[in-house]
């Protein structure tokens, strides 16, 4: 694991490599600082979203879900979530924790995490 340096605002960013590591319209689980994070790439627009890796319902791997229209459907029991806000759609699960992402000029996916021990998401 690469060591992370800490910028002034208390956030660390991780370089997840180029966007091509994630197939278009799919998700991929990443192991970042010992924690699982799901990263999704929208088809066409190449927008990227990051959320907690597992469904709050029965821990299904969300990166294996079907993605579209800014939403993901969990592969285990079809619970749906909004990728930008993490909000559950039509189910009573807790919201997903979401994380800030960015695409660099050279098409790299950057993931921003709080450097604090609390490790809280952006929502």
């Amino acid at each position: 694991m690469t060591a992370a340096s800490i910028p002034l605002d208390g956030m660390v960013h991780y370089d997840l490599g180029t966007i091509d590591r994630i197939p278009p319209g799919e998700g991929q689980t990443f192991l970042v600082a010992g924690r699982e994070i799901a990263v999704f790439r929208a088809r066409g627009t190449d927008e990227v979203y990051a959320t907690q890796a597992r469904c709050p319902h029965k821990a299904g791997l969300l990166a294996d879900g079907i993605v579209g229209d800014g939403k993901v459907i969990c592969p285990l029991h079809s619970n749906k979530f909004d990728l930008a806000t993490g909000a559950p759609l039509g189910n009573a699960c807790q919201s997903l924790t979401t994380y800030r992402t960015e695409i660099s000029h050279d098409r790299r996916v950057l993931l921003w995490l709080s450097a604090a021990a609390g490790w809280s998401g952006s929502t």
Binding site: S5, I6, P7, L8, D15, G17, R21, T29
Partner: peptide
């Protein structure tokens, strides 16, 4: 990445 369980970052920084 078709059969990858989880990938790791390639780097980190500020």
């Amino acid at each position: 990445s078709q059969f990858a369980d989880a990938l790791e970052p390639v780097g980190a920084g500020s």
